[in-house]
Design a protein around this nucleic acid. Structure first.
Lengths: 121, 121
DNA sequence: CCATACGCTACACTTTCTGTAGCAATCGGC
DNA sequence: GCCGATTGCTACAGAAAGTGTAGCGTATGG
């Protein structure tokens, strides 16, 4: 997969608008999860692999390379970590956690109120 | 692909932590782009297809169904639009645009300072 | 009615992701 | 120095997800 470099053609934008390049990047499997985990704590390759429950090493390495090339992840003596840019992005992602909890509650409530599941006997 | 329903197993979390369910969802091709476009303006199926430059109708329909089932997108007389939940999520996504612009500038600067490209003759 | 536009599906093809195995390199411990 | 354990990472085959084009059935307007 080619890197979604702002300014070049990316998914959603032939001219590579930065927001579209970002969406292309974040829209790749595991990308958000990796940034999230690294925002919690630096990690070595195998630690990260373990924290991301089921990620394959192949893909983890691919993503790390991409994030590295786009200056969001760096290697440190303590393993992989976010760059200043990466940390700034993580700050934007963080508020999604409380939102997600509310959302989850609401979906649960919707399901409870419309019990159109298998048990309609 | 199965819906990333919070509380069920999703990518990154066997117990389905809401934030992981969200990452699973947003990590799917075009998902962020669709939410972004709908946050700008409601749109019919074909309008949305056109605005998302190269999305295939197959996938657009798949994503819309997913977003609909997860209560982020609804059908209106004016075409597809975001639900209140969807709008709240869009508000969290919006600040990514200015961040992305800065990021793009910085990547450009990095490239300019290390001209390790083909023209090293 | 006939042309047009719509929402959407079918389906064959391509690209991406997974999962397991395992290699080369490093790190103690002895 | 040598040995087992761990690390970062790659290979590769199979599975899954996404693409792209054609086109169906319905609604709308002339």
């Amino acid at each position: 997969m080619s890197l979604p470099i702002p300014g070049t053609q990316v998914r959603g934008s032939k001219t590579g608008k930065p927001i579209m390049a970002l969406f292309d990047l974040l829209g790749r499997t595991w990308c958000l999860g990796i940034i999230w985990q690294l925002s919690l704590d630096n990690a070595t390759f195998r630690q990260l692999q373990a924290r991301c429950e089921d990620i394959s090493p192949t893909l983890l390495n691919t993503r790390l390379k991409e994030l590295f090339q786009l200056d969001l992840v760096q290697k440190t003596p303590l393993g992989y970590g976010l760059t200043p840019h990466g940390k700034a992005l993580a700050l934007l992602i963080r508020p999604m956690a409380p939102w997600a909890r509310q959302w989850a509650d609401n979906i649960q409530r919707l399901k409870d109120n419309s019990p159109e599941d298998d048990s309609h006997a």
